[in-house]
Computed example of a mutant assay.
Amino acid sequence: MEFTGSQIIAASREVVWKGLNEAAVLQACVPGCEAFTPVSDDEFTAVVVASVGPVKARFKGSLVLSERIEGEGYRIAGQGEGGIAGFGKMTATVTLADAEEGTLLTYIAEAQVGGKLAQIGSRLVTSVANKLAAEFFKRFNANVSEAVAR
């Protein structure tokens, strides 16, 4: 399944880029995130609790950032295991561009699920994935905009 979105963030590309590469900011923005730990500059481990329809699980996984172009964007590859609930894999391309009000952040993501999650149906899973992405960027926008206001 594929989903896309964009958001204008009231901050410079430099500030947005810094936030996109800071573990504490990312952890604060991921809904249900219990832990987000850097392994290296490009890799993180995470623990996220998520609900998709009747399935609620704690997912343990990893996130790798690649193809970084400072101030312009990067590629994210993530995967998580939720025990009996199943697994999820995701890749996304995030790009930044100047906008009149700050920075335009755009993402194109592709996700795969297996186990019980796959049995729920792609419509519901896609809907939840879109809501989680929207919530992440809402939080990210607020977090970065607040940092700029200080």
Score class of each variant (00 low, 15 high):
S127H: 15
A24T: 13
E14Q: 14
R13W: 02
Q119I: 09
T93M: 12
F87S: 14
A147L: 15
N21F: 13
E101I: 12
G102Q: 08
G71H: 07
P54K: 11
A92M: 09
S66L: 00
V48I: 00
G61K: 05
L96T: 02
R75E: 02
G121M: 02
L117K: 09
S145P: 06
F36G: 06
K89P: 00
F3I: 09
S145F: 03
S66V: 02
F59V: 09
K60D: 15
F59S: 01
K116C: 05
A10V: 09
T103R: 00
G53Q: 03
L132S: 05
V48W: 00
Q79D: 03
L132M: 03
L20Q: 01
S127F: 15
I76L: 14
G61F: 09
D98S: 02
L104Y: 00
F87Q: 14
V55R: 05
K60F: 10
K131I: 01
G121E: 04
A133N: 11
I120W: 12
N21D: 03
A24E: 07
K138P: 12
A77E: 06
Q119L: 13
A99D: 02
E2P: 01
A111S: 14
V30N: 03
L65G: 10
A46Q: 15
V148T: 08
I9N: 04
M90T: 05
A129C: 01
L26S: 05
T103Y: 02
L20P: 13
K116A: 11
A24F: 13
S6K: 15
E100S: 11
K56N: 07
G121D: 06
A50K: 15
S62C: 13
E135W: 12
A142E: 03
I84D: 15
L26R: 14
R58P: 10
S12W: 06
A99I: 11
V94D: 02
S127I: 04
A111W: 04
R68N: 10
V55I: 01
R150V: 15
L20H: 06
A109T: 10
T106P: 08
P38G: 10
A109R: 12
A10M: 11
L105N: 10
G32F: 02
L104M: 03
G19Q: 12
A118N: 06
Q79G: 00
F3H: 09
N21C: 08
D42T: 13
G121W: 13
A28I: 11
E81I: 08
I69K: 15
K116G: 13
V144F: 08
E70K: 05
G32H: 09
L104K: 13
N141D: 12
G82T: 01
E67L: 05
L96C: 04
A85E: 02
T103Q: 06
E43Y: 03
A147H: 15
T91Q: 04
V47H: 12
F136L: 09
E101T: 08
A147I: 11
I120N: 04
G80V: 09
E14C: 09
K18E: 13
E135Q: 14
K138S: 14
E14G: 10
Q112A: 03
L104N: 08
G80P: 01
R75F: 01
N21W: 06
K60M: 12
W17T: 04
Q112C: 06
G32W: 07
A118K: 12
L65D: 07
E70D: 08
F136T: 01
T95G: 01
G86S: 03
A11E: 00
F136A: 06
L96D: 07
E100N: 12
F3V: 04
N21I: 10
V16Q: 08
V94E: 06
